[in-house]
């Protein structure tokens, strides 16, 4: 993209995009995990409903994705400020900023949400078509 205007403007755009990415890290991981698990499960069950062998692999896959996502989210939570400095640049090395708090709590909420979908995976048959 070509632009005139002040030289710093591209940084402004990237700075907000980076900030948003940092703030939304948790929910974004949740979204990816949710989409993968739901899509793969739906696809597998549509292709071969009632296949127990697939069921086993499917279960393993979904548990793996969920666990990996939770781990990734927790990793960001633990080294959040360092990551923010890397991603967003920025000063404020000392102390938690509002952005750190927001990002951190969003990760916690996302971890809860992902764990709950893990609970569902653990408690329910994979491709059971019938209701109750």
């Amino acid at each position: 993209m070509v632009h005139s205007g002040s030289p710093g403007q591209k940084q402004h755009v990237t700075s907000i995009v980076r900030l948003i990415a940092y703030l939304l890290a948790g929910p974004l991981i949740w979204a990816v995990q949710f989409s993968i698990v739901y899509a793969v499960h739906t696809l597998a069950c549509a292709i071969s409903p009632g296949e127990t062998a697939i069921g086993g692999w499917l279960l393993l896959f979904m548990v793996g994705v969920t666990a990996a996502s939770v781990a990734a989210a927790l990793a960001i939570l633990l080294c959040g400020r360092r990551i923010r400095r890397a991603v967003c640049g920025g000063s404020n090395a000392a102390g938690w900023t509002a952005y750190d708090i927001i990002s951190g709590f969003l990760i916690i909420l996302s971890v809860v949400a992902m764990s709950w979908s893990g609970v569902a995976i653990g408690l329910l048959e994979t491709c059971d078509q019938t209701q109750m």
Partner: peptide, 23 residues
């Protein structure tokens, strides 16, 4: 989180029990 975890697990168990019945 505590309360909803309990309720969710309970509800899913009920759901699973129903599925078992239908099988």
């Amino acid at each position: 989180v505590v309360v909803l975890s309990g309720l969710l697990a309970y509800a899913l168990l009920v759901l699973q029990a129903g599925a078992a019945r239908s099988a």
